[in-house]
């Protein structure tokens, strides 16, 4: 394992110091978790862990894009909820209708993202306040679509989600796929514009970057990743729940920060957020297997996340020092 870690370290040396801090945290989290949990590398434990990670990883990628554009989306969790209840109502237990449900979820993500984008970019409301407000619209709509928990996802989907292909958990493949989608987007003009607008909107405007349109795009992409997160949640739970995604919002912001993306915008990337999301989920595991009494878990969890956020911020501090 140390060899693999060293290889990883070599590969990221050229990238960013903040990325290094994230990888170091992941290595520590995996080491501690596997020391505390004897069956950590067993196939069931691996599969179930990755199955837990996917929804947070997907929403963290979406949040990264919004943050890179200089915004913040506090409605992403509510979008996950709304997309998941719409999809579960559409699929209604039938495998034939699953593609339709995927399309419906993506449609919801697209519409929610477009609404946020318009409110932020055209009405020029503060992203935090605007998306906080739209989050109530989305979670309210979710309650209208599915007033009480229910609905069912086809058995084939929930089973495949927990399966593995040639020993590799399907959920891990999904995480790799999400990272690949990010890498493809990263090369696209829209993402280059997102970086430019988030870094310095005025300079971007002067360079003929369509600032408002780029901001709308960032929220739309955020919504699409929220929809993917919703589909992962459905595959994980096998059923709909009108409150299911709301707690993911703040976790997605934490994952972005642990991943080394600057909340000011313009710097960072979703690769770090993917690792950040995994670190966050592993922390919950570690606290359980360390036998922290149940009353203290939230406290310890919060303290560890603060520590991780601080560690993720150190490289940025060092970068700032020479210029100060």
């Amino acid at each position: 394992m140390t060899g693999a870690a060293a290889g990883l370290v070599d590969r990221v040396r050229g990238v960013q110091l903040s990325g290094l801090a994230t990888v170091a945290m992941l290595v520590v989290a995996v080491a501690v978790n596997s020391a505390l949990q004897p069956n950590f590398w067993d196939s069931y434990a691996l599969t179930s862990n990755f199955a837990t990670f996917v929804p947070l990883v997907a929403i963290a990628v979406g949040q990264t894009i919004v943050v890179l554009s200089g915004g913040l989306d506090l409605s992403l969790g509510a979008q996950v909820t709304l997309a998941s209840v719409v999809a579960v109502q559409v699929v209604d237990g039938s495998l034939d209708r699953f593609p339709l449900a995927v399309a419906a979820a993506l449609g919801v993500g697209l519409a929610c993202g477009a609404l946020n984008g318009l409110v932020v970019a055209l009405l020029r409301l503060q992203p935090i306040v605007a998306t906080f407000a739209t989050s109530f619209v989305f979670s309210g709509l979710a309650l209208v679509v599915l007033p009480t928990p229910g609905g069912s996802v086809p058995f084939e989907i929930t089973t495949a989600y927990r399966d593995s292909v040639l020993g590799v958990p399907v959920a891990l493949l999904l995480i790799v796929a999400l990272a690949l989608v990010w890498l493809v987007l990263r090369r696209h003009r829209v993402l280059r514009h997102v970086y430019a607008v988030g870094g310095d909107a005025d300079a971007a405007y002067a360079s003929l970057v369509p600032v408002a349109r780029t901001r709308v795009w960032a929220y739309v992409l955020g919504g699409l990743f929220a929809a993917l997160s919703a589909l992962a949640i459905l595959a994980n739970t096998g059923s709909g729940d009108p409150f299911v995604g709301n707690e993911l919002t703040l976790a997605s912001v934490a994952a972005v920060v642990i991943g080394g993306t600057a909340l000011a915008g313009g710097r960072g990337g979703a690769g770090g957020s993917v690792l950040g999301a995994i670190v966050l989920a592993l922390v919950t595991n570690i606290i359980f297997f360390a036998d922290v009494p149940t009353d203290y878990r939230q406290l310890v969890n919060g303290a560890v996340i603060i520590l991780a956020l601080a560690l993720a911020g150190i490289p940025a501090l060092q970068k700032r020092r020479p210029s100060a």
């Binding site: 739970t237 409150f243 359980f288 297997f289 149940t294």
Partner: peptide, 20 residues
Amino acid sequence: VESADTDVNGQIQQIRNLIN
């Protein structure tokens, strides 16, 4: 004992921890 205010995702993780 896995006892905490959580949503369905959190309870799934609780149960997976108990299984592990």
